[in-house]
Structure formats: C-alpha cells, structure tokens
Design a protein around this nucleic acid. Structure first.
Length: 562
DNA sequence: AACGATAGCGCG
DNA sequence: AAAGCGCGCTATCGTT
C-alpha cells in the first residue's frame, strides 16, 4: 500500500497519445510504471490527492486536469526548476544542467485551444514532455539540490516556484470576476457612449477639436509624435518630447486638453470596448500569468495586459451575487524585505506595526513621509541625483546594514559578478558584449569616451543587481504567501462542485496584492487566512526575525480602492 | 505586407 | 527629462 501513498509521482506524454504514469522516489528512480489513456489522467490524479506530481510543465499538464474538475495539491515543475537551478550560485556543479538545453525552451502556450490534453502538436522548439526525459532532468535537479551549498533554500524555492505555477493555472481558470456593465459605464463617463466601429467617441473628438483649435491647425495630427511636436513648436511650446511629464511643465492653453486627449486615447486603445470584447466575453477576465517570467522571479503576463489594469477600471472588478472580494496588499513590501534580509533591526523597528515610511520619519531620519519614500526607493533603485538621490545619504547613516546590502549588490554587479536572492535565485551573467566593453575600457589606450560609456553601462548593471536582490526576494515572499493561502483556501467549505472555484479562491495576483473571491459568509475567514498566510510566509523566509508584513485588507463587492 | 525599433504610458 | 528597478501593450515609423 505504500505505492498508493507515495509522495512522488510522475507523468509523461507518450508518442502513441497515452500517458506514462510512474511512482518514483526522491531521486527520480521509478518503482512502478503504467500506461493510461490520456482521458484517465484526471481520475488517476484525483485518486492520489497527497502525491507530489513531477511533470514537464505545469501549464501543459494542469489546465486539462483542472478542466476535468481535479485539483492538484503539490507539484514539481521541471521546466521552471531547471531555469532556477541552472543559474543558481548555490548549486556547486551545474554543468549537466547547463548542458540539458532542451529544457530552456518556452512553455506551452496556455491560450492554445485544446479539447484534451496535448491535442495540439507542440512547437518544434518546445520542451520535452515524455516521462524519461522528465525524470532524467528531475534526477539532475535532485542531485543538484542535494549537493548545493544550502539545499534547504533551494528546496523551498523550487517548491514555491512550482506552487506558484499551480496558482497561475488556477487563477486563469477562475478569472477575475468582472462587470461589463460597470466597465462600459466608466468608459462612457470618460469617453462618451460607445461609438460605431471606426469612429472615435464623442469626448475624444471634442478634446481633439479643442487641441487643434489651440494649435491653430484644424488638420493637426495628434497621434504622430514628430508631427505633434512640430505643431507644438509652432505655437511656442518648446518641448523636446510629447510625453506628459514634460508637457505638464508648460503653461499654455493647449496643454490641458492635450493631456486629457492623451489620457482618453490611452484608455480607449488599451482598455476600451475592443479590449473588453476580446478579454471579457462574459463575466470573467482571464489573464495569462507567466510564473518566473521576469529574471528576478516575479511573474510576467502575456495577453490582456493583466499587470497593467488601470486603477480607473478597478470598480469593474465585481464579486458575483452572494459573493464578495477580499482585497489585500502588502504595505511597503520591498523595504520590509530589505530590512529582514539585511537583519537591520533599526529599519525593522521603524516598520513594526505601522507604515514603514512614517516610522522612518518618527526616527527623525528625514522630515516627511514623501521624503522617506523617495529616499528608500532611491536606495533600492540606485538613484544618485534628484530629490531621491539627495536623501539617500541620510538613510545610509540611519540604516547602515540595510544600505550595505543593496550597495554591496550594486558593487558586485558593476564588477560583472552575480548576486542572489534569499532563496538562491541568481542574477544572469553579463553579456559577452558587456564584458568586452569593460575590458576595452580597462586598456591603457582606451579613449575617454569609451571609458565613460563603459562606466555608464557598469553602473547600469549595478542598479540592476542592486534591485535584483530585493525585488527577487520580495517575489519569493509573495510566492510563499500565495502557496500558503492557496492551501488554506482549499480547506474552506465547498459551496459548489469545482475544486477551486466552488469555494473561496484566489482571483487575482499582482506582485504584492491578491484578490480572493469568496462567498459572503466566508469572507471574514478568508481575510483571516490572507493574514495568517502572510505571517506564515514571513516565518518561512525569515524565521523569528522581528518584522511584520503589514497588510491592508478590505472586504467589498468591488475592488475599487475607496 | 511584414517585421523591428522607438516613444509613450499603464502597473508593481 | 529621466535622474532610478522590473514589466506589457499600442501606435507610429522606418526597413526589408
């Protein structure tokens, strides 16, 4: 009976259309192996709810299983973990991982229509999906982790990354509950009623008329930057670009309507009626999340612009009848991560139980909250001038440990080295071109121009590695938060059939914010789960270090921030 | 006609 | 006009 309760199980696609399904040990050795029809896979998964499923790619496998109504509790995503371990500086010998280049290919396209698992032929450059290749790579990874400088961190990271992949598929399946009516009302309010195809909304036309009148040119083009620039110059607005931050600085009657026009056109083209029809055919927005899509470990998105939903449209995020939303975001996540990583007790003290920026002001480091925010962002992004850079030195005096962490990361990056997050995700190596440039600039006969250019590129890379450690570790905290919350919510009372959406479930995630869609009666418990999960994530990454991850949590039918 | 690069703006 | 990180998307314009 041990086989049925085995912790590790693996699946692979067969060329005859079936699925190889295996029981394996922690090193990837097969102890039992069978062939099943693809249609039977979901039942097999359902029959072993405690298993940890090893598979090539969560997107490729889990969509179909979840569509069949079966939830997976844990997995090991071979493709995602390959990318982490191949590059991690905690891995002592990554030669064979680097040689296994088949695993560097792209993930399955989650938007591809498929009635059954793998109904479509994979692209020629896709990763392998067969059991042998999957387990061979899994064995490499297990060995790499076992021999690593700190196996515990990499076990946490690979588990968190894989859990995130499950969440991403579930988020897509659940979708963001969305009111087309509210969306339409916002568009109508800002732009005017929906126009006929090929026509502009009335408010946009009116704004364009006003702009053209102020430009003294009824035929002026507003959408071509070079032509708009010339028109502006003709009326004495001597800007160098047409960007809003530069326009804002000029006092001319054309500015106000022009900025309003740009704003309206932006809303229309990015999230107007066409976008609504394409992305919200019924009452759900289903963005495609791409776990690990950013080098730092943050998620990216593909299609729909899920990570750029304008705040203006957030009222359109609306819970179903008898359901509500739990909207939670972390206050000052990255500065808190920095304090905990660096073990900076003074910064942690400023953050404890309150707004971190207010805490910095209370210590007398800088005069205002805005100053504190600018200074801290400047420190994490590498600002050297302006309001932000000017404030960094006082921060450096007050919080030397935290500042040393980011300053060291920047120095390593400028020197061409790699940095890593708390759990071991490692920054990419500099390109060959970057190294050549630095080598050229180091030659005695190098010109001043080459030296200056090389220096500028070195500082640029330093800013990247400076931010990498903080942004990447924040992404790890967020993954731990998501993974813990996901499992808490799975234990909530069911009100429907579906294993994910038939109870309180995650509906949206964006770096440091989550939205849970919950039956009204379960909203308080869901909010509590959100808080408990944040506490658990903090303990998982930082143990007993005295720092809380403060959440702003609100329960409302709409995601509008009021 | 079909790309790629660029400007600009939205999000964290 | 980015000075300061990470993204995705749209429209325009130049190249092939």
């Amino acid at each position: 009976m041990t086989a049925a309760r085995a912790r590790w199980r693996a699946v692979g696609r067969r060329s005859d259309g079936g699925v190889d399904i295996a029981v394996v040990d922690a090193t990837g050795s097969v102890t039992e192996r069978r062939v099943i029809p693809t249609a039977q896979l979901a039942d097999e998964v359902a029959a072993d709810p405690d298993a940890r499923w090893i598979w090539s790619d969560t997107t490729a496998w889990y969509h179909g299983i979840l569509a069949a109504g079966v939830r997976v509790d844990r997995c090991h995503d071979v493709r995602l973990c390959h990318a982490i371990l191949r590059d991690s500086s905690l891995v002592t010998d990554a030669a064979d991982l680097r040689a296994a280049t088949a695993w560097d290919a792209a993930s399955a396209d989650p938007t591809a229509e498929r009635d059954v698992l793998f109904a479509l032929e994979p692209a020629a450059d896709a990763i392998p999906h067969d059991l042998d290749a999957t387990l061979t790579e899994f064995a490499r990874q297990a060995r790499a982790i076992g021999e690593a400088t700190d196996p515990g961190r990499l076990r946490l990271l690979t588990a968190a990354e894989s859990a995130g992949a499950l969440v991403a598929v579930e988020l897509h399946a659940a979708g963001v509950p969305w009111s087309r009516d509210v969306h339409d009302a916002i568009l109508t309010d800002v732009l005017g009623p929906r126009p006929r195809p090929g026509e502009l909304p009335s408010a946009v036309r009116d704004l364009a008329d006003r702009v053209r009148a102020e430009l003294g040119d009824p035929g002026a083009s507003l959408d071509s930057h070079p032509r708009l620039l010339r028109s502006l110059h003709r009326v004495g607005v001597l800007v160098e670009s047409t960007s809003k931050w530069e326009l804002r600085r000029h006092d001319h009657p054309v500015i106000e309507p022009l900025l309003a026009y740009k704003r309206a056109m932006r809303l229309l083209s990015a999230n107007g009626w066409a976008w609504m029809d394409e992305w919200i055919p019924v009452d759900r927005f289903r963005p495609v999340y791409v776990p690990g899509g950013v080098v730092t470990g943050r998620w990216a998105s593909s299609g729909g612009g899920a990570l750029q939903l304008p705040r203006m449209l957030r009222p359109a995020v609306r819970a179903d009848e008898r359901w509500t939303l739990v909207v939670a975001d972390v206050a000052q996540l990255e500065p808190r991560i920095l304090a905990a990583m660096a073990g900076d007790v003074a910064l942690a003290e400023a953050a404890r139980g309150r707004d971190l920026y207010e805490g910095i002001v209370a210590r007398g480091t800088v005069p205002t909250r805005q100053d504190a925010k600018m200074a801290l962002l400047g420190a994490m992004y590498g600002a050297t001038s302006g309001d932000s850079g000017r404030l960094v030195p006082s921060l450096r005096r007050a919080y030397p440990r935290a500042m040393a962490l980011v300053d060291d990361a920047a120095r390593v990056g400028e020197d061409g080295g790699s940095v890593r997050t708390l759990l071991g995700r490692t920054s990419p190596e500099p390109s060959a071109a970057w190294r050549e440039l630095q080598a050229d600039a180091a030659e005695p006969e190098a010109s001043d121009a080459v030296r200056a250019f090389a220096r500028s590129r070195a500082r640029e890379r330093g800013r990247f590695t400076r931010n990498f450690v903080v942004q990447g570790t924040a992404a790890e905290w967020a993954l731990a938060w998501l993974a813990d919350l996901r499992r808490r919510l799975a234990a909530f009372p069911a009100v429907g059939e579906h294993p994910v959406t038939g109870r309180a479930h995650l509906a949206f995630f964006l770096h440091d914010e989550i939205i849970v869609h919950a039956p009204v009666d379960h909203a308080d418990a869901a909010a509590e789960a959100v808080r408990e999960a944040a506490d658990a994530a903090g303990r998982l990454l930082f143990g007993s270090f005295p720092l809380d991850f403060r959440l702003d949590v609100r329960i409302a039918a709409s995601a509008d921030k009021s």
